[in-house]
C-alpha cells in the first residue's frame, strides 16, 4: 500500500506525538518496567530483609542459583511438564470438539448462525471464575452429574469395579476438563473465521472430480483451515499453560502447575528471585509457540 501525502492526515509533529506517546509511555512504565524488574530479580539473591532480595554485597551481582534450581530441583521440572502436558491435551481436545462445531456453524442457515455465534461468544463475557466454579458444583461427589457418570460407569464395567462416586475433583482430569470448557470459545472463533472464508465452489469442484466427502475434507477443507487451527491452538495453549485459577480450584495440589508454583514461591516462600526465574523460564517457553505462530501467520499472509 502506498501513502499519498494527504493520507497521513494526522501525521504531524505534536499531534501524532500525543496519540502515540501517551499509550507508549503508559505501557513502558506500567508493563515494560515491571517486567524488566522481574528479569533483573531472577538473578538477584534471596535475603531475609524486606524487600527480600539483594544485588551484590556479599553475594554475586548476578546469581544464577535460581535458574540452576529450575533444572536440578524435581519440583520445577515436574510442574513445567504437568503444565505443558495439561495445556497440550486441553488444546487437542478443544480442537477435536471445536473443529466440527465451527464447521457446523458454517453450514447452518444465516439466522441460526448469528444466534449460535452469539451463544459461543457469550460465555467469554461472563465471569471466568464463575465458569470454573460451575464445574466445581458438577464434579463434587454428591452432585447429580457425578451420580449420572457413576451410574453409567457401574452399568458398563464388571461388578468388582463398581464405585460409589467418581473422584473427579482435585485431579489433573478436572483441570483439563475445565480448561477445555473455559477455552473452547477461543478455539471455535478463529476456526470459524477461517472456515467461513472458504469458497464452497472448491468443495463442489472436488466432488465433481470424484472425491468422496471424507477426501474433500482431507484435501480441500482441512489444509485451508490450518491458519485457524494454529491461531485457535495458540489461544488455548498459552493461557492454559500459565493458568492459576483452574488448578487452584479443581487441581491436585500435590502435582501443581507452573502458575501455582510461581505464586507459591512468591507469596508463601517469599523467594522473589526464584518466583521471577520460574516466570522468566515460563515466558521463554511461551515465546517458542508464539514464534511458530507468527511464522505461520506471515506465511499465510504472504500466500495471499
Amino acid at each position: 500500500m502506498t501513502d499519498s501525502p494527504r493520507t497521513k492526515y494526522m501525521d504531524r509533529r505534536g499531534w501524532s506525538d500525543i496519540i502515540i506517546g501517551a499509550p507508549y509511555v503508559w505501557l513502558v512504565i506500567f508493563f515494560l518496567l515491571p517486567f524488566l524488574i522481574v528479569v533483573a530479580m531472577s538473578v538477584a539473591t534471596k535475603t531475609a530483609t524486606a524487600p527480600p532480595f539483594s544485588f551484590g554485597g556479599e553475594h554475586p551481582l548476578i546469581n544464577l542459583q535460581a535458574y540452576q534450581r529450575i533444572f536440578t530441583d524435581d519440583l520445577y521440572l515436574r510442574a513445567f511438564l504437568t503444565s505443558l502436558a495439561n495445556a497440550a491435551v486441553a488444546m487437542i481436545l478443544c480442537l477435536l470438539l471445536g473443529y466440527p462445531m465451527a464447521l457446523a456453524l458454517t453450514r447452518v442457515s444465516r439466522g441460526w448462525r448469528n444466534i449460535l455465534l452469539m451463544l459461543v461468544i457469550l460465555p467469554f463475557w461472563t465471569s471466568f471464575l464463575l465458569r470454573v466454579y460451575a464445574w466445581m458444583g458438577l464434579m463434587g461427589r454428591n452432585s447429580w452429574f457425578n451420580g449420572m457418570l457413576t451410574d453409567a460407569w457401574n452399568f458398563l464395567v464388571p461388578v468388582d469395579w463398581a464405585v460409589r462416586s467418581i473422584p473427579m475433583m482435585n485431579t489433573n482430569f478436572a483441570v483439563i476438563l475445565v480448561m477445555v470448557y473455559t477455552y473452547l470459545p477461543f478455539m471455535i472463533l478463529p476456526l470459524y473465521a477461517s472456515l467461513e472464508r472458504l469458497d464452497p465452489t472448491l468443495d463442489e469442484a472436488a466432488m465433481d472430480l470424484g472425491s468422496r466427502p471424507s477426501q474433500v475434507f482431507r484435501d480441500v477443507t482441512l489444509p485451508q483451515s490450518v491458519p485457524g487451527i494454529v491461531a485457535g491452538g495458540m489461544l488455548v495453549f498459552i493461557p492454559a499453560a500459565g493458568e492459576l485459577v483452574i488448578p487452584t480450584l479443581v487441581g491436585n495440589a500435590a502435582d501443581p502447575m507452573i502458575g501455582r508454583v510461581i505464586s507459591d514461591e512468591f507469596a508463601t516462600a517469599r523467594d522473589w528471585p526464584m518466583a521471577s526465574a520460574v516466570a522468566v523460564a515460563l515466558l521463554v517457553l511461551m515465546v517458542i509457540p508464539t514464534m511458530i505462530y507468527t511464522h505461520f501467520q506471515g506465511r499465510a499472509e504472504g500466500s495471499k
Binding site: F35, V38, M41, G259, A275, M286, T290
Partner: peptide, 16 residues
C-alpha cells in the same frame, strides 16, 4: 500483555 500469563503480570506489577 495479551500473551503474558496473568500470574507473571500480577507478580511483576506487585514487585513494581
Amino acid at each position: 500483555p495479551l500473551i503474558m500469563p496473568e500470574v507473571i503480570t500480577g507478580i511483576s506489577s506487585l514487585i513494581f
